[in-house]
């Protein structure tokens, strides 16, 4: 039984309005103050390959992320390859040995534990949320669930940034509870087919269109599935 019916809405409200880029940054900062971690980074993924950090809670977390991308190995790369969450603590040397170069650099920079979560919607793979700790401590159950709620928000925020939408629009559209209904996912697949674009691009195109048309994502999705709205290459 859930202790909190909708962890998402409270979190979105605390993020407040603002431009898309600072939205991701505020999300990272909020993660550090509300979950017991010391740094947070949102990284972008394109065609299944990590591209680089988009936002970080502070310069330390950003530097750790830059080092990881420069090395081309580490939790973010494993998440991109497996599409599943990765966690490692320096208390458990075996886990860090998996990335010999990253383990060395992370240790030098004071990282003792890392939790990295895929940002995804179905088959759409958008990026990763990395949470860093300076102590080799595991997260307990409720902290873990707090992280997953942030993963959900970060995923939607990333799509909004890619759709070129503003922070205030993010709040109003995500607050709508039909954002993840089956029809929305069906319509995303249909857009991907109509435009011959990736499913990730389809997610962004759909949100931009919903904003332009002044309808909710679910209303637009219902029209697409009913064949009333088509997407065509310009």
């Amino acid at each position: 039984m859930p202790d909190d019916v909708d962890r998402r809405s409270g979190l979105v409200a605390r993020l407040g309005p603002g431009d898309p880029h600072s939205l991701l940054q505020r999300l990272c900062r909020l993660a550090v103050t509300e979950v017991p971690v010391d740094g947070a980074v949102i990284g972008l993924q394109v065609a299944g390959v990590p591209e680089g950090p988009l936002a970080a809670s502070d310069s330390w977390a950003l530097d750790v992320a830059k080092a990881e991308y420069a090395l081309g190995e580490g939790p973010t790369f494993d998440v991109a390859a497996t599409n599943e969450h990765v966690e490692a603590s320096s208390g458990d040397a075996i886990e860090f040995q998996h990335w010999p170069q990253y383990a060395r650099v992370a240790h030098e920079m004071g990282v003792a534990a890392v939790f990295c979560f895929p940002l995804r919607i179905g088959r759409a793979r958008l990026g990763a949320l990395s949470l860093l700790r300076t102590q080799p401590v595991e997260l307990d159950d409720s902290q873990y669930l707090d992280c997953l709620a942030r993963v959900d928000i970060a995923t939607h925020a990333l799509i909004y940034v890619q759709a070129g939408l503003q922070g205030s629009q993010f709040e109003s559209l995500l607050a709508h509870r039909d954002v993840d209904r089956l029809r929305v996912h069906q319509a995303t697949g249909m857009i991907s087919g109509m435009l011959d674009c990736t499913i990730e691009d389809a997610l962004a195109r759909m949100r931009a269109r919903a904003f332009v048309d002044g309808v909710t994502l679910y209303e637009l999705a219902s029209r697409i599935v009913a064949g009333e709205v088509r997407f065509e290459e310009p």
Partner: peptide, 14 residues
């Protein structure tokens, strides 16, 4: 489940 819905939409269009 979401992946199946996305694939359904793609196949329906194609």
């Amino acid at each position: 489940r979401v992946t199946i819905e996305q694939a359904k939409g793609l196949v329906a269009t194609k």
